[in-house]
Design a protein around this nucleic acid. Structure first.
Lengths: 164, 164
DNA sequence: TATTGTTATACTCTATAACTATA
DNA sequence: TATAGTTATAGAGTATAACAATA
């Protein structure tokens, strides 16, 4: 009740206005646009994100997995690759020896800074259709949506019950 | 040259403002939020998109694949499933008997309308963190970015050359 | 017993190439 | 010969479950 628009945009198709497809297109374009920048980063965008998170805060793998929204088994392989690349280290947490804190190496931090600059550039290209103010708006809105979604944790959507 | 911001947002990490992660979070949340609505649609969001495209314009499979950004081999399976579900039909194009035009059935059209309503509702929930005006802005900006990206075709990003 | 991390297995998704039929 | 569509095979990515070490 009281949805925003009439259900059917009669006449032609309004696919251009279709949120679902637009989001997919954006996602794919994003991957393409940052691909060359993240080519040498293990696991591409995922490795980059990990590096960005790890740089500021030293976290164990489970916390990292939760934050990035990936499985802890995946995290193992991911960190393996980042360690091999020399971007992060695993350090045993003396307080709880089950945990391994992930710490960015100097090389990792330097690489990250370099990557962030390149990724930023790629993002600007991606958002070329927008003016500078709009681009900033879009960034801000996206960020707020993501934060909101992250906090709410989508309690309204029982994805697990439906897995049959 | 003349990028928007200084490369490093010194101090803590600015992951909340990280476009890359935000986009991923949004994408995942979107999937989750529409999952129950699209549960009975073959191939989920992809089948839904296909139905939306097919409804307005009768296209052959190759054109469909191009538009949706998927491979033509994938399209075959996708259409197979949609046919099985009774949402679309394959019709031989008399003008060129190599082609199969994909046409939505009555049932497909009705289902689509129903789905669109549900998906719209889910999207509103997804964008809950935004006010109504902001929500509309976000939709519009996203749509424009997607269109821009689609037209430009990302010529600047040589993803194939880098495939080693 | 519960938790962190690792390993092994299986499953899904996607990409590549070979094939049929029409042009 | 080139194109539309199909089929088969292999690869990447992901999820599940079982395991080892520590609490």
């Amino acid at each position: 009740m009281s949805t925003e628009t009439p259900a059917t945009p009669v006449g032609g198709v309004d696919v251009a206005g279709d949120f679902c497809l637009s989001l997919l297109v954006l996602m794919r374009a994003y991957r393409t646009v940052v691909a060359s920048a993240l080519d040498d980063v293990p696991q591409g965008a995922r490795g980059y994100q990990t590096l960005a998170v790890v740089r500021g805060d030293q976290q164990n793998q489970l916390a990292l997995a939760t934050y990035l929204g990936i499985d802890r088994t995946v995290t193992t392989y991911l960190i393996d690759d980042l360690v091999t690349a020399g971007f992060v280290e695993r350090r045993l947490n003396p307080a709880d020896r089950r945990q391994r804190k992930i710490v960015a190496t100097t090389r990792g931090v330097n690489t990250l800074q370099d990557l962030q600059r390149q990724v930023r550039g790629a993002e600007v290209r991606l958002l070329e259709a927008l003016g500078e103010n709009e681009r900033q708006s879009f960034r801000t809105l996206l960020s707020r949506v993501a934060c909101g979604v992250r906090n709410v944790d989508l309690a309204a959507a029982p994805s697990r019950d439906r897995h049959t």
